[in-house]
């Protein structure tokens, strides 16, 4: 085997090993979403607490934070107080709306969860799972931001805590609510 062939083989093997290594240690949650920049699917569903219908259309022209959660989801509990804090920080802005979407849950469990951990904004019940599928949800928690024009600008899989919370607040919500272009997260 010539020197050149040997070097080529080594380069190919190192490349394959690097690919394998990256796949081994990469974040399995990171699957690039195809929904950013697309029109947010509209939906209508009953409010978890009151049963009254809630539609995304009624919040047209506002910045909407959509948080998918379930009572059986441990990470949702972890992020819950942060989600409530996020709502507290922006609730006085008339252009800000926060909506929870209760995913694959029993109604009684969801209601108990909200009574126990607190609720300051409406939550829609995804009865048939179609809202989650329309938003390409893999699991909970997942959070989306929809801008004033109804375009999905942000998606995060996992709890909104720590640096994720700060990024969402400072680099996405504050620019959108002040009419400036948010930076890419």
């Amino acid at each position: 085997m010539s020197r050149g062939t040997q070097i080529t083989l080594i380069v190919i093997l190192v490349g394959l090993f690097a690919l394998f290594y990256q796949g081994l240690w990469g974040d399995p949650r990171h699957i690039p979403t195809v929904l950013i920049g697309t029109k947010a699917p509209t939906f209508i569903g009953p409010d978890v607490e009151t049963g009254r219908p809630i539609s995304l259309d009624q919040f047209r022209g506002k910045v909407v934070v959509l948080n998918f959660w379930a009572s059986w989801c441990y990470e949702c509990r972890v992020e819950h107080e942060h989600i409530l804090r996020l709502h507290r920080e922006f609730q006085h802005d008339p252009n800000f709306v926060m909506l929870g979407v209760n995913y694959q849950d029993e109604l009684s469990d969801a209601q108990r969860y909200l009574q126990r951990f607190g609720s300051s904004f409406p939550h829609v019940r995804d009865v048939k799972g179609t809202i989650a599928i329309d938003y390409g949800v893999y699991g909970v928690p997942e959070t989306f931001v929809i801008d004033q024009h109804g375009i999905i600008r942000y998606k995060h899989v996992g709890p909104i805590v720590g640096p994720t919370y700060d990024d969402l607040k400072q680099h996405m919500l504050m620019p959108l609510l002040t009419g400036t272009e948010p930076s890419t997260l």
Partner: peptide
Amino acid sequence: APLAQQMRNV
């Protein structure tokens, strides 16, 4: 999985 069941329904 329940999500798979819902997808089948869709």
